[in-house]
Amino acid sequence: MSLSISLTINRQSRTVTLDDPRVTLLDLLREHLYLTGTKKGCDRGQCGACTVLVDGRRINSCLSLAASLDGAEITTIEGLAVGEALHPVQAAFIACDGFQCGYCTPGQIMSAVGLIAEGRAGSDPERIRELMSGNLCRCGAYQGITEAVLEAQKTMTAEKGRDAA
């Protein structure tokens, strides 16, 4: 059975035909659309490497059936930078050494973008660690990750203030 769905992926409208309803959002992105920035770690919702934004909210793309997302707006790691200009969260991960091997990094960054948009952590590192607990890092770069989230949040708040002024 084949299913047709419409998605907006990184601000681009796409109509996707699924020849099998078993395709997860993660597999759709990686195997069908060749957006391989989103990583497959555990494929069971335990590691967070596959985190993307769906309608602005961070979710595990490995536990989401593409067929159930008709009409959704998806943002992946490929959709963050504008040309050569990095997103503030990407820049902060580099500045704060928020990674070592880099495999979990796209998921960490997407999760951090979601976290900052949710606006519930403030500048409390303990709240940031708690709200980032769905993203595992085997290299143990957590210290840098927490600093990067704090740093990016500061930059983004300042930019927002400037835009409003």
């Binding site: 919702g45 967070g48 909210r57 595990n60 999760s111 979601g114 980032m132």
Partner: peptide, 8 residues
């Protein structure tokens, strides 16, 4: 769960 799972 995690923030991602609670969102879904």
């Amino acid at each position: 769960a995690s923030a991602q799972l609670r969102n879904a």
